[in-house]
Amino acid sequence: MNPAPHLLRLNINGQCHTRAVAPAITLLDFLREEIGLTGSKRGCDLGECGCCAVLVDGAPMLSCLLPAADLEASAITTIEGIGCGSDLHPLQEAMIEHGAIQCGYCTPAMVLNGVALFAREPHPDEHAMQTTIAATTCRCTGYNAIRNAYRAVAAREESR
């Protein structure tokens, strides 16, 4: 009853990963179960909570809704591909500094969506930031600290 595995080759964080997987596997399951990249979270499986966000060719997408097989030609960036060791992205730094993190389950998505926003528009207006944050559900912080972290990045003199 299980369809034959399908050899899938994905470019994730600049590295090529090849796995034999079920043809219908979602990108989220591919990342978490096959590659062991667990920074993308499984919050609802319905594309509602936003915690599974990744960047596909730089654009935020919900990995729980994406068939992995459609992405062989794309460059996928997960939270593990943002910042490098102690060299964090300014939004990662601002999230830490503003106390925008509690349980941390929404944090990767909040960071990735913001990274995409600031790459597109270094000084986004309030509405753009609000819309970006609204893509992800946070149950802990009440969003105020997250919003303040975004504002701090938007107000920087130099964009990255």
């Binding site: 997960t78 593990e80 993190i101 944090t107």
Partner: peptide, 11 residues
């Protein structure tokens, strides 16, 4: 700041 903050922002 939160003790796991760096771990959280980097997944």
């Amino acid at each position: 700041t939160h003790e796991s903050a760096v771990g959280h922002v980097s997944g």
